[in-house]
Design a binder for these strands. Structure first.
Length: 284
DNA sequence: ACCCAGGTGGCTT
DNA sequence: AAGCCACATGGG
């Protein structure tokens, strides 16, 4: 049936995980529960994956992956299975009644370790946009510029495009794919990434380098750092975050610096996790 | 017709 | 540094 699937990987005894939370909390755009049965399919790098979860009697879960490639280490790392989320949640909730409902309700989130270039492009697309349309834009560029990886559940799946291909593409193609004013950012950001590679240094230095990309501002840079570079203190402030920082902590919706300061003070090194629990909880 | 969505760049005080 | 506003697109 699925000739592309070559390997089954199973991780047992995992706590604090819920695939729905992982894949629908807004951090990634290429995972779907296509049949509505809790089985998620996605493309990660050049690999296809079908992921499902079994809840065992001791409260832990087994995560089953049917994949077309990638070894255990790769998927373990991608899913952030080596991190103790129980400790993180305990830390976030200490002296903070406001975040508890979000952590309790969205406690199965894991922050994925995503590809830098894909995250860069995806979150440039995300600006002033909504999630369903972001997904459509990404799928259309994958279909147009990505390598076909094989048929999977009756559909041909495509890798995320290589930067070389997008850098050489005409901006007008993206206009045709309804990228709107973001179209011009696609080739230029890709070319810049090819020149520079990954941003290096401490968080401030990385942010400074990311802000030099046309189409990347403070919010998108923070997302890239959190989702691709594992800067767990990174606290992206978007419209939903503005809402809950105002609701929960009484900070004025325009006071972004105040929000960043408050997040640092309350959550420190774990700001990114806090943001993710709250974002998903508030967005619903 | 408006407002909003995982905002940013550019221009004006 | 801070305050506007335009920027494509599609859904409510």
């Amino acid at each position: 049936m699925d000739d592309v699937i070559t390997n089954r990987i199973e991780f047992k005894g995992i706590f604090d995980i819920d695939l729905k939370h992982v894949f629908e909390c807004g951090q990634c755009f290429r995972w779907e529960d296509e049949k509505g049965d809790g089985v998620y399919t996605g493309v990660v790098g050049d690999y296809l994956c079908r992921a499902s979860q079994r809840r065992d009697d001791d409260g832990s879960s087994a995560i089953m992956l049917d994949v077309s490639g990638g070894d255990e280490d790769f998927w373990y790392e991608y899913l952030d299975l080596g991190t103790d989320y129980r400790e993180i949640k305990k830390f976030l909730c200490r002296n903070n009644d406001e975040i508890r409902p979000a952590v309790k309700s969205c406690g199965g989130i894991r922050i994925l370790k995503q590809d830098f270039y894909e995250t860069l492009i995806s979150f440039i697309i995300s600006q002033n946009n909504n999630i369903p349309r972001i997904k459509k834009c990404i799928e259309s560029m994958c279909k147009r510029f990505g390598e076909p990886l094989g048929e999977f559940d009756g559909r041909i799946r495509y890798a995320f495009p290589k930067p070389e291909v997008v850098a050489a593409a005409d901006e007008e193609v993206f206009v045709g794919m309804k990228f709107g004013y973001r179209s011009a950012y696609m080739p230029t950001a890709s070319a810049k990434f090819l020149e520079e590679g990954l941003p290096t240094g401490n968080m401030a230095e990385k942010k400074e380098k990311l802000l030099k990309y046309a189409g990347v501002g403070p919010k998108v840079a923070a997302c890239i750092m959190l989702y691709a570079l594992r800067d767990t203190a990174s606290f992206p402030i978007d419209t939903w975050v503005k809402h809950f920082m105002n609701d929960l902590y009484g900070i004025d919706e325009k006071n972004l610096a105040g929000m960043a300061r408050k997040a640092e003070e309350m959550f420190g090194e774990y700001g990114g996790y806090a943001q993710q629990y709250l974002f998903y909880y508030y967005r619903g």
